[in-house]
């Protein structure tokens, strides 16, 4: 359910497969009812009370309240735990809202990262130019919203470095992402500037595997897995709440660790 991974046993995979039609149904219902808030409103409570909308409204208001509490709890200096190489989970689980065979197969030669919003320089970026920027590597635990977790190694450009390079307004509220797999998402600026938040090009010291977001993904160990979009094709800086693929269906937006 996060954008990442699954070291799942066959039994767990069967469970996820069983859940998938339900999620798609819910997703369609959300789309039919239209828009972000209504989409989320129709499905949070899971009960068919006569006044189910009231329950949903309360749950959504509490989720917004939890966004604010998490922003207050967040410290840009608190670092996610890091691990030795022998702790890396192998094979690293795959997870997304579609099977791995349907993952985009992008060609780095054609790929560009579009940059827009509150930035000074909107020149699109190639993989080559991104690799010319300072690189950071980390071994951290990816925690999925489903509950499981796995330790992996990612390398790439710190998002802070990138935002500074494109002259982003770092007082803006959000950094948003659009992806080649129809996924989209957004994070708060404070988390975007945390030193472990990176635009990852590498996984285990090699270019990202195709199912893991090649050529570019976000790796943010201070948020749940679904806040780590893969196959990024566009990045934007904004003050208008951009939402996200799962957030628009009811997942808590901040979802910070």
């Amino acid at each position: 359910m996060s954008t990442e991974d699954d070291k799942r046993s066959p039994q767990r995979r069967a469970l996820a497969d069983a859940m998938r039609p339900k999620l798609e149904r819910i997703g369609r219902r959300g789309l039919l009812r239209g828009g972000f808030s209504l989409g989320a409103l129709t499905m949070l409570s899971g009960c068919n009370l006569a006044d189910g909308d009231t329950v949903d409204r309360i749950l959504l208001a509490m989720s917004r309240f939890n966004d604010r509490v998490q922003a207050l709890l967040f410290s840009g200096h608190a670092l996610a735990p890091t691990y030795a190489e022998d702790r890396i989970t192998r094979p690293f689980p795959y997870n997304a809202f579609y099977p791995i065979d349907n993952a985009p197969d992008l060609d780095a030669a054609d790929w560009k990262l579009e940059v827009s919003g509150l930035v000074a320089d909107r020149t699109p970026w190639t993989v080559e130019r991104l690799r010319a920027l300072p690189q950071e590597s980390q071994i951290t635990r990816l925690i999925c919203v489903e509950g499981w977790s796995a330790i992996g190694q990612w390398g790439g450009v710190p998002l802070r470095t990138f935002l500074e390079r494109v002259g982003a307004d770092t007082r803006a509220r959000y950094v948003g992402f659009k992806c080649a797999d129809r996924y989209y998402g957004s994070i708060d600026m404070a988390s975007a500037l945390q030193p472990q938040t990176i635009l990852a090009l590498d996984f285990e010291k090699k270019p990202l595997p195709s199912g893991f977001g090649y050529p570019l993904r976000l790796r943010i160990p201070t948020k749940l897995g679904f806040k780590n979009p893969k196959f990024i094709t566009a990045l934007f800086v904004t003050n208008d709440y951009p939402g996200g693929y799962w957030e628009d269906q009811g997942y808590n937006w901040f979802s910070g660790s």
Binding site: M1, M19, C47, L59, G250, Y251, N252
Partner: peptide, 25 residues
């Protein structure tokens, strides 16, 4: 959504309808 042990709780015993609803509750 990701059982620790080889069993899951039946639908009538859980609240929220799906993972996102369960987390919201």
């Amino acid at each position: 959504a990701s059982p620790l042990l080889p069993f899951t709780f039946p639908g009538w015993a859980v609240l929220g309808g799906w993972l996102g609803g369960g987390i919201a509750w």
